[in-house]
Design a protein around this nucleic acid. Structure first.
Ligand code: NAD
Ligand code: NAD
Lengths: 237, 237
DNA sequence: TGCCTTTCGATATATCTTTATCGGGTATGA
DNA sequence: TCATACCCGATAAAGATATATCGAAAGGCA
């Protein structure tokens, strides 16, 4: 909508943003192995990407490399973390302490990436008052008050699809700025709110469509039987 | 790579594929309400998309609508389901019966969308032999044999990142064709294998970056204070 | 030192995706 | 029956993203 072209720190393709954590993951591995410098060709070889793409992505973070040498692994990790805001923690509320919510609550590693789920909310009387992975399950009604008081600006929705919109509405009223939505609905929110949908059914669609294509239409293992010394960029995402 | 241009049934943008389940979800709601016809403008209004994009997406499924009327809801649902292969069930093996694996195993609604997780595999002796949500947890070693015998061609990885690659390798040896990977690593697989990465850390990156941008750079609620009768296409995805 | 290779950064091109536009068909209601 | 508003389908334009190319810098090595 805005014709802004390249304002530094302001614009980055979603796709690049998605790859940065993957670089980060690999870089941390490298660092653990004692490697101190890395080139985009190396990263690309590891992650099945062409070097130029990696370089482009890294440029968004503002880091500069040196010809022949590449980048300092340590510095690169730092830069990515800082760029992604993983240095200062985001505290979040989770709504819907069911199957999926429980899994997220139990995932401690999130804290390494700037996310700390501080409490869960539910409407099920049987769950309210209990603790899941050391996080309290509170009545949904208390969310607005607590969010305000604690200055929470990130909400996670793992409640049933039917109630997701109303949950989102309440979150926004409570001053929440960004929502990580696991319910398979497209939320209607004011423009200033940032929503990230984690729609597993959409993923499922890719998978089942691919599998269906395999068997229905005549696409049977064309380039089968490995033996491909090529860059071998396989179908991903 | 291939110069194939538009072979029917063969090519569809990932993005469109991702939206189809969202249409489906809304259409099912509509049908339940007794609505029999629907236009792309209506769908677009509901899902915050411009009508022409919805139309484009639907065209990939091969359905044809009628001017003024739109599409038959029932027919459209059918077409999408059939296009996505949701009519015939894909049976899948899940590896890694931990937090996330348990959540997936417990999600019965997957079966409505062509996915049936038939068993879980793990290496943790404490888990092997137990049942999670009525699914048996088996030793990983048995996967190859069972996959072959049962003709399973879809694998779900919810094991730790460190072992994800080795799990994938075993799956592929066992004849599995597509992998739904929840571990935050980019798997190296032969070209014929289809991998769909569900990388939650990547999602997290979008969120934390957005939040960081909010507070760091001077982007403070520019178009704040609702009051926007416009199509109001908010930042999503 | 001088040559060769690697790799970065910048620019250009290609490809993919979204959005706009146009023409024509169809229900609705005067 | 006719005018009108709506909506589809096709094609074109615009916008994003991915890939290719080129010059220059830097290290390795004769
Ligand atoms: N579990 C999965 O693997 C999976 C997969 C795909 C999508 N999802 C989606 O994630 C969401 C949660 O799935 P789940 O499997 O955890 O469901 P679940 O039924 O296990 O959990 C839902 C939780 O939300 C709570 N809840 C219900 N109404 C609420 C409300 N108004 N406010 C707050 N909490 C409320 C319930 O008490 C329950 O604890 C659903 O939207 C589902 O479609 C889950
Ligand atoms: N839980 C989440 O919310 C979450 C979020 C983001 C990413 N993930 C990713 O999903 C994966 C699983 O996460 P989790 O929270 O369920 O972890 P978890 O530790 O709860 O579960 C992992 C399971 O895998 C099993 N396992 C270990 N090695 C194995 C092997 N070689 N073969 C088969 N099974 C093996 C373990 O016994 C355990 O049951 C991880 O890769 C994690 O990074 C999880």
């Amino acid at each position: 909508m805005k014709p802004e072209k390249h304002l530094p720190g302001g614009a980055i393709p979603q796709a690049s943003l998605r790859r940065l954590p993957q670089y980060h993951h690999y870089l941390v591995e490298l660092e653990a192995k004692g490697v101190s410098r890395v080139s985009t060709s190396l990263i690309g070889r590891e992650l099945n990407l062409v070097p130029v793409q990696v370089r482009k992505d890294l440029q968004y973070t503002g880091i500069v490399g040196r010809p022949k040498t590449g980048y300092e692994v340590k510095e690169l990790i730092q830069t990515i973390e800082s760029f992604l805001g993983w240095n200062n923690v985001n505290e979040a509320f989770l709504v819907g302490a069911g199957n999926l919510g429980t899994a997220l609550l139990g995932h401690e590693r999130f804290s390494r990436f700037g996310l700390r789920i501080v409490a869960a909310f539910d409407t099920d009387a049987a769950k309210i008052g209990s603790w899941i992975h050391d996080k309290a399950v509170l009545p949904l009604d208390k969310l607005p008050e607590l969010a305000g008081r604690m200055g929470i600006h990130l909400g996670i929705i793992t409640a049933p699809a039917e109630v997701a919109q109303s949950v989102a509405d309440r979150m926004i009223e409570a001053g929440i700025q960004a929502i990580w939505n696991f319910a398979p609905v497209r939320l209607r929110v004011p423009e200033r709110i940032f929503v990230h949908n984690e729609d597993l059914y959409s993923s499922l669609a890719s998978l089942s469509w691919k599998l269906a294509a395999r068997f229905h239409t005549g696409l049977r293992h064309e380039s089968d039987d490995l033996a491909e010394p090529e860059p071998q960029r396989s179908v991903q995402e």
